[in-house]
Simulated scan of single mutants.
Amino acid sequence: MPPAIMAEGLVKKYGDVIALDGMDLSVPEGTVFGLLGPNGAGKTTTVRILTTLLKPDAGRATVAGFDVVADAHRLRARIGASGQYAAVDDHLAGAENLEMVGRLYHLGAKRSRRRARELLKRFDLTGAADRPVQGYSGGMRRRLDLAGALVSDPPVLFLDEPTTGLDPRARASLWDVIAELVAGGTTVLLTTQYLEEADRLAETIAVVDHGHVIALGTADELKDQVGGDRTEVTVTSATVALALRTPEVFNNLATIVSMPLVFLSNAFVDSARLPGPLKVVAEWNPVSTIIQTARELFGNTASAMPVRGTWPLQHAVAASLLWSALLLIVFVPLATRLYKRAVSQ
Rank of each mutant, 00 (worst) to 15 (best):
R273F: 10
S237I: 10
R115Q: 13
L201K: 03
A272K: 13
G139P: 12
V249D: 14
R76N: 05
W175E: 06
S324Q: 14
E96K: 04
R295E: 13
E232R: 15
L261K: 04
A335G: 11
P247L: 07
D270P: 02
P154A: 00
A95K: 15
A41C: 06
R169C: 00
V233F: 08
Y105I: 04
P28K: 11
P155S: 08
Q225E: 14
L92D: 06
T51D: 09
G165Q: 09
L20E: 08
A325P: 00
S173K: 12
P132Q: 10
G299F: 06
S112E: 06
A219G: 13
V156R: 05
A267K: 11
T192Y: 03
T46C: 10
V226M: 12
T192D: 08
Y194M: 08
L144E: 11
L201E: 03
S324F: 11
K12W: 06
L119W: 10
L120D: 03
T44G: 13
D145M: 05
L201M: 05
L98S: 04
A19W: 00
L264F: 12
T301Y: 00
D71V: 01
H73Q: 14
D220Y: 00
H106C: 09
A170V: 05
A206Q: 08
E99V: 14
A116C: 02
P132E: 11
K13D: 07
L50H: 06
V330E: 15
S152T: 10
P2L: 08
M23T: 04
P162F: 07
L201A: 03
T45C: 08
A325W: 09
G135M: 04
G108D: 12
S320I: 00
